[in-house]
Computed example of a mutant assay.
Amino acid sequence: MAAISLRKMEETAPALVDAYRSAGVSLRKHGLDGQRAAVYLVLDRSGSMRPYYRDGSVQALADRVLGLSAQLDDDGRVPVVFFSTDIDAVTDIPLAGHRGSVERIAAGLGHMGRTSYHLAMDAVIDHYLDSGATDPALVVFQTDGSPTSRPAAERYLCKSAKLPLFWQFIGFGDPRSTQFDFLRRLDELPVPQQRIVDNAGFFHAGPDPRSVPDDVLYDRLVGEFPSWLAAARAAGVVRPS
Rank of each mutant, 00 (worst) to 15 (best):
residue 5 S to R: 07
residue 6 L to E: 15
residue 7 R to N: 09
residue 7 R to Y: 11
residue 8 K to F: 06
residue 10 E to L: 13
residue 11 E to M: 14
residue 11 E to L: 15
residue 11 E to H: 14
residue 12 T to P: 06
residue 12 T to R: 05
residue 14 P to K: 10
residue 14 P to C: 11
residue 17 V to W: 03
residue 18 D to A: 15
residue 19 A to Q: 03
residue 21 R to W: 01
residue 21 R to S: 14
residue 23 A to T: 13
residue 24 G to Y: 04
residue 24 G to V: 08
residue 25 V to L: 14
residue 26 S to Q: 15
residue 27 L to K: 09
residue 27 L to F: 13
residue 27 L to V: 13
residue 29 K to Y: 14
residue 30 H to P: 02
residue 30 H to D: 11
residue 30 H to Y: 13
residue 30 H to N: 11
residue 31 G to E: 10
residue 31 G to H: 06
residue 33 D to C: 06
residue 34 G to A: 01
residue 34 G to N: 11
residue 35 Q to Y: 08
residue 35 Q to K: 12
residue 36 R to L: 13
residue 36 R to N: 08
residue 37 A to W: 01
residue 39 V to N: 03
residue 41 L to E: 01
residue 41 L to R: 04
residue 41 L to Q: 07
residue 41 L to A: 10
residue 41 L to W: 10
residue 42 V to N: 01
residue 42 V to G: 01
residue 42 V to M: 06
residue 44 D to H: 02
residue 44 D to E: 00
residue 44 D to N: 09
residue 45 R to D: 05
residue 46 S to Y: 07
residue 46 S to W: 09
residue 47 G to M: 14
residue 48 S to Y: 04
residue 48 S to E: 10
residue 50 R to S: 08
residue 53 Y to V: 09
residue 53 Y to W: 09
residue 53 Y to A: 10
residue 54 R to H: 04
residue 57 S to A: 15
residue 61 L to A: 13
residue 62 A to M: 03
residue 62 A to P: 03
residue 63 D to G: 03
residue 64 R to I: 05
residue 66 L to S: 02
residue 67 G to T: 02
residue 67 G to F: 00
residue 68 L to F: 04
residue 69 S to C: 05
residue 69 S to I: 06
residue 72 L to D: 08
residue 73 D to N: 15
residue 73 D to I: 02
residue 73 D to A: 14
residue 74 D to V: 00
residue 74 D to K: 15
residue 75 D to W: 00
residue 76 G to L: 09
residue 76 G to D: 04
residue 77 R to Y: 04
residue 77 R to T: 04
residue 78 V to Q: 04
residue 78 V to C: 10
residue 79 P to S: 04
residue 80 V to N: 01
residue 81 V to P: 00
residue 82 F to C: 12
residue 82 F to Q: 00
residue 82 F to S: 07
residue 83 F to P: 05
residue 84 S to E: 13
residue 85 T to P: 00
residue 86 D to W: 05
residue 87 I to M: 06
residue 87 I to D: 10
residue 88 D to M: 08
residue 88 D to K: 15
residue 89 A to P: 00
residue 91 T to F: 04
residue 91 T to K: 07
residue 92 D to I: 01
residue 92 D to C: 03
residue 93 I to W: 04
residue 93 I to R: 04
residue 93 I to P: 08
residue 94 P to S: 12
residue 95 L to T: 06
residue 95 L to C: 12
residue 96 A to V: 08
residue 97 G to I: 00
residue 97 G to A: 13
residue 98 H to C: 07
residue 101 S to C: 06
residue 103 E to P: 00
residue 103 E to H: 12
residue 105 I to C: 02
residue 106 A to P: 08
residue 106 A to W: 02
residue 109 L to Y: 12
residue 111 H to D: 11
residue 112 M to Y: 14
residue 113 G to A: 13
residue 113 G to E: 13
residue 116 S to H: 13
residue 116 S to P: 05
residue 117 Y to D: 09
residue 118 H to G: 09
residue 119 L to H: 11
residue 120 A to S: 12
residue 121 M to K: 07
residue 121 M to N: 03
residue 122 D to C: 11
residue 122 D to M: 09
residue 123 A to G: 08
residue 124 V to R: 02
residue 125 I to H: 12
residue 126 D to A: 10
residue 127 H to W: 12
residue 127 H to P: 01
residue 128 Y to R: 05
residue 129 L to P: 00
residue 129 L to K: 12
residue 131 S to Q: 06
residue 131 S to D: 02
residue 133 A to W: 05
residue 133 A to P: 05
residue 134 T to R: 11
residue 137 A to I: 00
residue 137 A to E: 08
residue 141 F to Q: 09
residue 142 Q to M: 14
residue 142 Q to F: 05
residue 144 D to T: 04
residue 146 S to Y: 09
